[in-house]
């Protein structure tokens, strides 16, 4: 074991494992939030704004109250606020949800940058990780296995959401609303209300995802913090074919692939670092292109979703 622990391959694998755990959580939360929203038949492309605003609010609140978990909650509420605006505006007839999402992205990030100026320099209390890898005796593995509670919350949420969609009446209502609005109306359901709630709740989750960025990993607030992770996470929902469990796998894959770039350079494979850094995107595209599907692959997609029609 010790001999293996010194090899480059081991370093790479540990980095990918650690990356999967460290980097995946915000992707997971945003993807789960978006999954909920899209299941109801609406798409919110603006969760990048929720993620960034959530990160900033969480940091600020943690800084002022000294309690990072209060920050997480506040981040969720800020995301709920943005999601509710999106949900309300898109309820109006003829308003396009994709476009409003992009506009909300500008609004959310603008608000976060505006309010966040004073918090770039100070250090706020962060979420403590649970050290699950001490027993290994290998520092790098111990670090990779120091896991933030939000990671487990995210996984539990995915399992719960999957169960919710399959086994509860509410889940059925959301799915029906997403698959066929006339059918939902026939059930006596208010399509607008369901979508509004699903968008607001999805926004809440994305805000929580942002709190992970600023309070856990990388654990700091600045304006470049997200650099597009929210947008990518929304795309991952399509990749995960609207399944909460697959959203988790997609987030883990994306996190692990993101660790390839730095880790390859750390073990001395340095040529072409731009491509290693782009590994998550290349891998995702290859996987999508190679899993051949029928011409109109609407089988998994909510039927009301504008993006897959």
């Amino acid at each position: 074991m010790d001999a293996f622990a010194d090899t480059a391959l081991f370093t790479l694998l540990v980095a990918m494992l650690g990356g999967a755990i460290r980097v995946s959580t915000p992707f997971m939360f945003v993807a789960l939030g978006e999954c909920l929203t899209e299941k109801s038949g609406r798409i919110n492309l603006g969760l990048e704004g929720n993620l960034v605003l959530g990160a900033m609010i969480a940091y600020a609140i943690s800084f002022h109250t000294g309690s990072p978990w209060t920050g997480v909650l506040a981040a969720g509420l800020s995301g709920l606020f943005l999601g509710a605006i999106h949900g309300y505006v898109c309820k109006l007839p003829r308003v396009n949800d994709i476009a409003v999402g992009i506009a909300m992205m500008a609004f959310g990030t603008g608000l976060a940058f505006y309010l966040g100026k004073p918090y770039i320099q100070p250090s706020a209390p962060r979420l403590e990780a649970i050290p699950l890898g001490e027993w290994t005796g290998i520092p790098s593995l111990a670090q990779a296995l120091a896991i933030n509670p939000l990671f487990f919350v995210g996984i539990a949420l995915a399992v719960g959401m999957s169960w919710f969609f399959r086994n509860t009446r509410m889940g059925l209502v959301v799915r029906t609303t997403g698959d066929s609005a006339p059918a939902a109306k026939a059930m006596g359901v208010s399509v607008d209300l369901v979508r509004f709630l699903a968008t607001a709740a999805g926004g809440f989750l994305a805000g929580v995802g942002g709190s992970f960025l600023s309070l856990s990993y990388p654990g700091s607030w600045n304006e470049g913090l997200s650099s597009g992770q929210g947008l990518m996470a929304v795309a991952l929902v399509i990749f995960a074919r609207w399944d909460p469990i697959r959203c988790v796998w997609a987030a883990l894959l994306f996190g692990a692939a993101g660790a390839i770039g730095p880790a390859m350079q750390a073990i001395g494979v340095t040529q072409g670092f731009y491509f290693f850094n782009a590994a998550p995107y290349i891998l995702t595209l290859l996987i999508m292109a190679s899993s051949a599907r029928s011409r109109f692959s609407g089988r998994d997609a909510p039927g009301e979703l504008s993006i897959v029609k």
């Binding site: 460290r22 790098s140 670090q143 990388p218 993101g258 730095p262």
Partner: peptide
Amino acid sequence: PVREAEAANALVD
């Protein structure tokens, strides 16, 4: 920031 943190971790590893 995320890649910088990953890079720092990879270097320590």
